[in-house]
C-alpha cells in the first residue's frame, strides 16, 4: 500500500497500489469501513494480477472532491506533522523534546 508515489517508485517493492491520500491513510479514511474494505479488495486483486516487477497501480480514489489542492498544503514548510492522539503516543524523539513538560517523559 502506498500514498507516497515517489518513495515507492524509488524503493521498488515487488508490487504496489497507490492511493493519493494524505500519509497515514493508506488503507482509507477513518471510520469509513466500506471504503477501507473496497481499498483492500482492490489491493488483493492487484496482488493477484500485477505481473511486472515494480509495477505500481494507481487506485482511483479521491481524498476530498471539494478540495483538489490539499497536496499543495500537505507536508510543506511549517506543516504540523504531529497528531493529537497523545493518549496513544507516550513520546518519541523530537516529540518528547517538544512536549517534555507536558508528558513528563
Amino acid at each position: 500500500m502506498s500514498s507516497a508515489w515517489d518513495i515507492t517508485f524509488a524503493v521498488k517493492p515487488p508490487r504496489a497500489v497507490f492511493i493519493n491520500f494524505p500519509l497515514n491513510h493508506e488503507t482509507g479514511k477513518a471510520e469509513d469501513a466500506p471504503l477501507q474494505r473496497r481499498i483492500l479488495l482492490d489491493a488483493f486483486k492487484a496482488f493477484e494480477t500485477l505481473w511486472a516487477p515494480g509495477q505500481i497501480l494507481t487506485l482511483p480514489y479521491v481524498w476530498d472532491p471539494s478540495d483538489r489542492g490539499w497536496e499543495d498544503k500537505d507536508f510543506g514548510p511549517g506543516f504540523e506533522l504531529y497528531g493529537t492522539g497523545e493518549s496513544l503516543q507516550e513520546g518519541f524523539g523530537e516529540k518528547t523534546l517538544q512536549r517534555a513538560g507536558k508528558t513528563g517523559a
Binding site: 494524505p22 500519509l23 497515514n24 491513510h25 493508506e26 488503507t27 482509507g28 479514511k29 477513518a30 471510520e31 469509513d32 469501513a33 477501507q36 504540523e80 506533522l81 504531529y82 497528531g83 493529537t84 492522539g85 493518549s87 496513544l88 503516543q89 518519541f92 524523539g93 523530537e94 516529540k95
Partner: peptide, 14 residues
C-alpha cells in the same frame, strides 16, 4: 517520531 495520529487514534483501520 513524526506521525499525524489523530485519525489513526480514532480508527486505526485507516
Amino acid at each position: 517520531h513524526g506521525y499525524r495520529d489523530a485519525d489513526a487514534d480514532r480508527d486505526p483501520n485507516c
